Simulated scan of single mutants.
Amino acid sequence: MPEGDTVWQAARRLHTALAGHVLTRSDLRVPKYALTDLTGRTVLDVVSRGKHLLTRVEGDLTLHSHLRMDGSWKIYAPGERWRGGPGHQIRAILGTEERTAVGYRLPVLELLRTGDEDRAVGHLGPDLLGPDWDPGTALANLRRDPDRALGEALLDQRNLAGIGNVYKSELCFLLRVTPWLPAGRLPDEYATHLMTLAEKLLDANRERPERTTTGRRDQNLFVYGRAGRPCLRCGTRIRVANQGDGSRERPTYWCPTCQPGPAPRPAPSSRPGRTR
């Protein structure tokens, strides 16, 4: 699932391509909206809210979409070949005279009254990249369930919106705590720093084509995706294990030396036994 900075970038691309222009083509390829026609309406703006995209159209209408794991919006110029995937994966087409936005593999696509956007995003916590960002509220949300693992609490968009699996692993590494630490056991000074650091990382990366948390040219990330490779701080091999409630487990990366605390046991060695 994309991180909040990725969705923010998608919103900006859509806004640049569509906002202020009249729709000359509209095709929503989901049964509920198969007969809906938005042509002739002006796109007012496109914004992100956490990991959600809101395309606001003249007439108090908002097209709400969510990318989840595989969805994407691609922008094409007139005559340009569409390369986002086969035609049967297209879920939405919004076209103007100058640009066409094509939504591929969108698992969530719904048309709302703009005044009813809270039906889609009202459950979200403060948005790390939004005007509603409030670190105090986000921290209070995070601590509502003190026994919940910190990594799971960070991924819960009801607590704070925008953190995905990459930032979860990287933030815990930078704080020197494991993602399995109960959120209620995070010291106050660490908790405050976590909110500041989360906003700083997402804000720094929203303008970048390639995400980085290290500030290094040779390695963009400290732990995510680096299982078995040496820690950039101490040289210990980075570990990976699934974290979740069993329904939405995600690979989680950490350094067992730099991040002491609760963590899954290493998998037993699978050396073949000797035969006689």
Results as ranks from 00 to 15, higher is better:
L181M: 11
I238D: 01
V177Q: 06
L201T: 13
P187C: 11
L201R: 12
P251T: 05
C231T: 03
R216W: 10
G184P: 06
R265T: 13
E249G: 06
N242L: 13
R216T: 07
R217H: 00
P187M: 10
T252F: 02
P179E: 12
A204L: 01
L232I: 06
T213F: 12
Q259D: 04
H193T: 13
L181P: 00
G244H: 07
P209M: 06
T252E: 00
R248C: 12
N242A: 14
Q243I: 10
V240D: 07
R217D: 05
P187K: 09
D188Y: 02
T257C: 14
W180T: 09
T192S: 13
E199Q: 13
A198G: 03
L186S: 01
T214K: 02
G225Q: 03
T257Q: 14
R237N: 11
E199D: 11
S247P: 01
D218S: 13
L201F: 13
R226S: 02
G225L: 03
A227H: 01
L202S: 03
P230M: 15
A191Y: 06
R185Q: 15
V177T: 10
Q259G: 00
Y253S: 04
T178H: 06
A267R: 04
T236E: 11
P230W: 12
G246P: 02
T196D: 06
P251K: 01
R248D: 14
R206V: 04
A227K: 09
R237T: 08
E199H: 12
R233P: 07
R206E: 02
T213W: 06
A191C: 13
T212M: 07
R250T: 14
M195R: 08
G225I: 03
D245F: 03
E207F: 02
A227L: 05
L186T: 00
C234E: 14
L201P: 11
A241W: 06
P187I: 12
V223E: 01
D218N: 13
R206L: 10
R229V: 00
G246L: 11
H193G: 11
A204C: 05
V240P: 10
R250I: 14
P256R: 04
T252I: 07
C234W: 14
A263L: 12
I238W: 03
I238M: 06
R226D: 05
P251S: 02
D203I: 15
G184K: 04
P179V: 02
Y224S: 08
G261I: 00
G225T: 00
G228R: 09
D218F: 08
R237M: 11
M195Q: 04
A204R: 04
I238G: 06
A191D: 10
E189A: 13
R229E: 00
A227I: 09
R248Y: 12
Q259T: 02
N220F: 09
T252D: 00
Y224C: 02
Y253L: 08
H193L: 14
R216C: 12
A198S: 01
V177K: 04
R216Q: 08
N205D: 10
C231Y: 07
K200I: 07
L232T: 05
E249R: 12
G244F: 10
T236H: 05
R237F: 02
R216V: 11
E207T: 10
C255I: 11
P264N: 06
R208C: 15
P179C: 03
A241H: 05
D245R: 08
T252H: 01
R176Q: 05
P209Q: 03
P262E: 08
A204N: 04
A191G: 08
G235P: 02
